[in-house]
Design a protein around this nucleic acid. Structure first.
Lengths: 133, 133
DNA sequence: TTAAACCCCGTAGTTTACTACAAGGTCAAG
DNA sequence: CTTGACCTTGTAGTAAACTACGGGGTTTAA
C-alpha cells in the first residue's frame, strides 16, 4: 500500500492536517481520491509538493504566486508560449531575489570580519547603510 | 532644509504614510524629532531604511527578523561576540535561501529551454518534481 | 484669509495564512 | 466489541502586516 492518510502526510511533511486541507481548498494541492469511508488517500509525492510550498513561502512568495509556480507546465503545444513567458518572468524575479540576498550576505560577512578584527570602538559597519539601491 | 515630512518620505519610499507610522510603532524605524506643531521631521536616510525593510520582506523575512537585522551593529566592545553570532546565523539563513532560489531558477530555466526546443507533446518537465529535499 | 492639502492620534477593519474547535463517523488493537 | 486514535465537514478564532477612517490641528499658496 503506497497510499497515505492525511495524518501520515502531515507527519512526513511536518505540517498540521488542517493546513493540508487548507492548501487543498486553496488549490495548492489537488483533491486526492477518497477511500469508501471518505478518508483522503494520498500518493507519497504530495509530500514533496507540500515541502516545495513551504520553501517557496519562506522565500517570500505568496500562496497565489506559489500556485502560479506550480501550474507552470505544458500539456498541449498551444500553451507553450504563455508558459515560457510566465516562467521567464519568474526567473527574473528569482534572479532579483538572489542578487539582493547576495548583497545582504556580503554586508553581513564584512560585519563579522570587522568584528573579528577586534576594531575596538564602534567596530562594525552599520547595516543601515545596506540597501540604498 | 534637508528634513522631510512623513508624506514626502512616503512618496520617496513608495509606501503609505500609515505604514510609516506603523513601522515606527513596531520599532522598525526610529521615532523622528518633531516640529513645534508636532509634525514628524525625517532625515532623508530613513527612505533607505524603509526600502531595506521592503526588500527584506519580499525575501521572506518577518518584521521581527528585519528588526533583528537592523539592530546588527556594535557600539561597545562587549556586544561584539553576540552580534557576530547573530550575524553568522543570519548569513547561514541567507545562504540557504540563495541555494533554494538557485535550484528553482535552474529548474525553470530547463523548463523554458525544453519549451523552446519544441518538444511537442507534454514538452516540459513538471515543476512538481522540483524539491524532493 | 481662507481653502486645499497636509499632518496628528486613536481605533477599527482587511487580507493572508493558518489554527482550533465541535459534532460526528471510521479503524485497528486488545 | 469496545475504546482510543484517527478521519470527516464546517465554522470560528488568531497573528502578522497593513489600511482605512474620524475628528481635529497646521501649512501654504492664491
Amino acid at each position: 500500500m503506497s497510499s497515505l492518510t492525511i495524518g501520515q502526510v502531515a507527519k512526513l511533511a511536518e505540517i498540521g492536517t488542517e493546513t493540508i486541507r487548507f492548501y487543498e481548498r486553496e488549490n495548492l494541492i489537488p483533491a486526492p481520491p477518497r477511500r469508501p469511508s471518505g478518508y483522503r488517500s494520498y500518493e507519497p509525492e504530495v509530500v514533496d509538493r507540500i515541502q516545495f510550498i513551504r520553501r517557496a513561502k519562506d522565500l517570500g512568495f505568496s500562496l497565489r504566486e506559489i500556485a502560479e509556480l506550480l501550474s507552470l507546465r505544458v500539456d498541449s503545444e498551444a500553451a507553450c508560449g504563455e508558459v515560457m513567458e510566465r516562467a521567464t518572468s519568474k526567473i527574473e524575479d528569482i534572479q532579483g531575489k538572489i542578487k539582493t540576498l547576495s548583497r545582504m550576505k556580503r554586508v553581513l560577512t564584512k560585519l563579522v570580519a570587522s568584528c573579528g578584527a577586534n576594531e575596538v570602538t564602534d567596530c562594525c559597519p552599520i547595516l543601515d547603510s545596506l540597501e540604498g539601491r
